[in-house]
């Protein structure tokens, strides 16, 4: 049961730290004009399938948009 309590507090701490980290990140990117000029880069980024598996002739999402409005 003690282990469960420690794990519970650890989970709560992770969530609180995530919110605090997010608040700081928003402050530094949105509230400070100089920092806001730089492109925002996250610590974790999700890759796209196209970046891993590229076949010549593949359309990117932006190019595919051109073919949508007929």
């Amino acid at each position: 049961m003690v282990q469960a309590e420690i794990t519970w507090w650890a989970i709560v701490a992770v969530l609180l730290l995530a919110f605090i980290f997010r608040a700081f990140e928003r402050y530094y990117t949105e509230c400070r004009p100089a920092a806001g000029d730089k492109p925002r880069r996250s610590l974790f980024e999700e890759g796209e399938e196209g970046q891993m598996l590229y076949v010549p002739g593949d359309l990117s999402d932006e190019d595919a948009e051109l073919f949508d409005n007929l």
Binding site: M1, A4, E5, W8, I11, V12, L15
Partner: peptide, 13 residues
């Protein structure tokens, strides 16, 4: 995950 984990506090405590 986080909602379930926090509500599990009712069991644990």
């Amino acid at each position: 995950f986080f909602s379930a984990a926090i509500s599990a506090g009712a069991w644990i405590f």
